[in-house]
């Protein structure tokens, strides 16, 4: 706890422009390096996954949230605490499936997409796909296997940006693959 209070939140923060522009440069570099949009989407998801599996520790330490009892609670923590902490926005939670195993995050003012105009030839690009990977990686570290994808994206002409999360299964306490 003392460690947490000693941290000055300001010095941890990165200029938002720097963050947004760096992500943009990364995506455009990937587009040069890979054949098609699908491959770029996969890479972004993979990068996000690697970030997510590490970031969850930082998140748990700083937010002091406990174990979630159900998927609804998880959704709340993601939207109101995790997004707030790392991106400074609070998406709204909607479109629960009847079984309660699937929901959507409606993202407004996604900081990753400031300034971005998607060229027509990249119609299949999920520009912010890194977020899907982050969520998948982070939730896997707390024993939840989920599927995450962009259902809609304003960059591609949709009216809203919607990230869909589907709960697959609870993972046993086995060591995650890929951990050093």
């Amino acid at each position: 706890m003392s460690r947490q209070s000693n941290r000055t939140t300001d010095s941890r923060k990165v200029s938002q422009e720097l963050f947004t522009l760096t992500y943009g440069a990364l995506v455009s570099q990937l587009i040069k390096d890979y054949e098609g949009d699908d491959d770029v989407n996969k890479q972004l998801d993979k990068m996000g996954y690697n970030i997510g599996v590490r970031m969850v520790e930082d998140f748990l330490a700083r937010s002091s949230v406990g174990r979630c009892h159900d998927f609804r609670e998880t959704a709340d923590v993601i939207a109101k605490q995790a997004f707030k902490m790392y991106l400074g926005i609070t998406p709204s939670i909607t479109n629960w499936s009847p079984a309660g195993d699937e929901f959507s995050l409606i993202v407004e003012n996604n900081p990753l997409t400031d300034f971005v105009e998607l060229p027509e030839k990249h119609g299949n690009l999920c520009y912010s796909n890194v977020l899907c990977g982050v969520l998948r990686g982070a939730l896997e570290m707390v024993q939840m296997e989920v599927k995450v994808w962009f259902a809609q994206d304003t960059l591609r002409g949709d009216n809203i940006t919607e990230i869909r999360l589907k709960f697959i299964k609870r993972l046993e306490d086995a060591l995650p693959a890929g951990e050093e």
């Binding site: 300034f115 105009e117 060229p119």
Partner: peptide, 19 residues
């Protein structure tokens, strides 16, 4: 400035931005 910050724009290229 916003146009230049679009990651899909290469500085020095003809400006084709919709906005």
């Amino acid at each position: 400035t916003d146009m230049l910050c679009n990651p899909f724009y290469t500085p020095g290229e003809t400006i084709k931005s919709r906005s």
